[in-house]
Design a binder for these strands. Structure first.
Lengths: 343, 343
DNA sequence: GTGAAAGCGCTAACAG
DNA sequence: CTGTTAGCGCTTTCAC
């Protein structure tokens, strides 16, 4: 059923039917009622492509998520983020386009999206410290919101980020206050912006209390259980092992926990663990928590916030860039404790 | 830059330019070269909406993924599946639309997709044993492929599934052969088709070797770490605890492992663990494996296979339904062993 | 309050 | 080999 058929069936012009359905005021109440009813009855919905072509707005938003080519791994935090965003889109009548980009041909994807005009805006994931995408996106003229930031370039575009530097400085400081002096940070991939800021917060906090950062205790890698396990395992087997771990994600923390347990260490007593917690729904359920001492930062909410920002930007392209810095909440529980005196 | 502008710039008709770009044979080589070059230079790509409207094909596929409303949880296996599928789409010039459906208004989403003609086909996720969606989808006339099956309705539509029944029968039999008689199955939500088949395989295998199934050992719930942990924890604290666990997913297995470790039990010695392994990239990296005894079943590959099936269906709507049943591979490692003699 | 007509940017007969 | 023309299904002036 299309507009023409529906209007013929009603003995009205396409114009009137269209106006009635789109809430234009100049339609009589009686007509509108009749039209709306017939539309519902015949299950009529305007073709999204025809509508897009006529209005010039595609009513769709793209999310471009990077997949490190060598691992073909998708970071599950995207799932939560996307769930949050898609709520917003659904409520506003937008569709969500998902593009999985092999590291590297991301640029081609953005160009494609822009020149094919398939979406009205883009959410950019996983920005790196020094990322060519920023210039590209600005030049493309496609509204976009970044989840995170592009290194020092923090102005001239819209982004939402959590205060990674402060969060990790705070967690580090929390551990040094407990007497820990050898604290390992099992971090994400080094050129990711979030990882750089976290490393920064960590080093800064050590500096503040006069502890010389040991490069061996700062480990970069993928956000995987394996990275957490391997890093912790190796450090614990080495000389002068850390008494505390700072994990850059819940998954990494789970790997660390496994290594600690295998080494016969009890968390919160023999060794402490603080993690950044993406609030992965997969691991949470009710009040129980697998890893209890965490910097809480709900990604799903990030998704809804970014989506809202973008829709606003799309609705009014003249808007000046919006930025939003969120603070993580430090929740203390049974996986941390004072540094063991004698080891 | 649109087709009109490009053709004017070249002094050719839109038709010729369109034909040159779309690889039609009747264009002279010289012209084609000139056109292709100009298109590349001006970064021209046809508007996808205009193209869709003209051709009647939207060149997009939707994935509808359900999110249990109460948990707002997204099962990460979707991420892997989608990564696999999106590869296929990218190569064939298709876009991927992602719809996150609150349990319940899934039907509205399919109707919407169909009547707005925003996609050429749909991948259906998480079918239930008795699922109203099957009839709906058939009546909608929108090509679709189901990842899994709709209970006993295994014909008249296209699906790809793994042989859940056989896989779990096999794993169960493997454990009974090792001498286990009390085997717990920590399964997914009961009305999910995959969970029903797994329970079926499990009970059948117990039956075959003359073990009376104890209902207390069959636990249904969400695919979360918490469900695994809680189930195993409770069983281990109860009377006559199981000597082996069968986990319906890697995440569940991780929860089970935690409960076992907390109870002071060593996997593969005091208690055995076999898991269905979705091959979640998050947990895999290199050759290391967190849980080693597993029914291997690579979801990412399921994604590419389903996508290929669907594209074929879309290309030739007359195709008879395709079905594909994959076998899981049982890999045996250090998390299983004979049943402990005395407990 | 309603309708006729133009046009969004492309593809696809049909001519030549 | 190239061009002319007529849509695809909607929205949106502009008239009435």
């Amino acid at each position: 059923m299309n507009l023409r058929e529906l209007s013929e069936k009603l003995g009205l012009s396409q114009t009137t039917v269209s106006r009635a359905l789109n809430g234009y005021p100049e339609v009589s109440d009686a007509t509108r009622r009749r039209v709306v009813e017939a539309a519902a009855q015949h299950n009529y919905r305007p073709s999204s492509r025809a509508k897009s072509l006529a209005t010039g707005r595609s009513m769709a938003i793209a999310h471009v998520i990077p997949v490190p080519a060598r691992h073909e791994m998708v970071n599950p935090v995207f799932a939560d983020f996307i769930a949050g965003a898609s709520d917003v889109y659904a409520q506003s009548g937008y569709d969500m386009l998902l593009s999985v980009a092999d590291d590297g041909d991301e640029e081609a994807i953005y160009r494609d999206l822009a020149s094919r005009r398939s979406v009205d805006g883009v959410i950019v994931h996983a920005p790196r410290v020094d990322d060519a995408r920023l210039q590209l996106l600005l030049s493309l003229g496609l509204p976009f919101v970044v989840h995170g930031r592009f290194g020092n370039a923090t102005e001239g575009y819209s982004w939402l980020d959590m205060n990674n530097r402060r969060a990790f400085a705070r967690a580090t400081r929390f551990l040094t206050d407990l007497g820990h002096r050898r604290i390992a940070l099992v971090n994400g991939v080094a050129d990711m912006d979030f990882a750089a800021r976290r490393a920064d917060g960590y080093s800064g906090a050590l500096d503040d209390v006069g502890i010389a950062a040991d490069p061996a205790l700062l480990l970069h890698g993928e956000m995987t259980e394996h990275h957490g396990y391997r890093s912790a395992h190796d450090l614990l087997a080495g000389v002068d092992p850390p008494t505390a771990f700072l994990a850059s994600s819940l998954i990494i923390a789970i790997g660390i926990r496994r290594a600690c347990e295998e080494a016969g260490l009890t968390l919160g007593r023999d060794v402490s663990l603080v993690t950044h917690d993406d609030d992965l729904s997969y691991f949470r359920n009710g009040t129980d928590e697998a890893i209890y001492t965490a910097l809480r930062s709900p990604v799903r909410e990030h998704g809804t916030l970014c989506a809202r920002m973008l829709l606003q930007l799309v609705a009014d392209p003249g808007t000046t860039p919006m930025t939003r810095l969120l603070e993580a909440e430090l929740r203390v529980g049974h996986t941390t404790g004072p540094a063991p005196r004698d080891r």
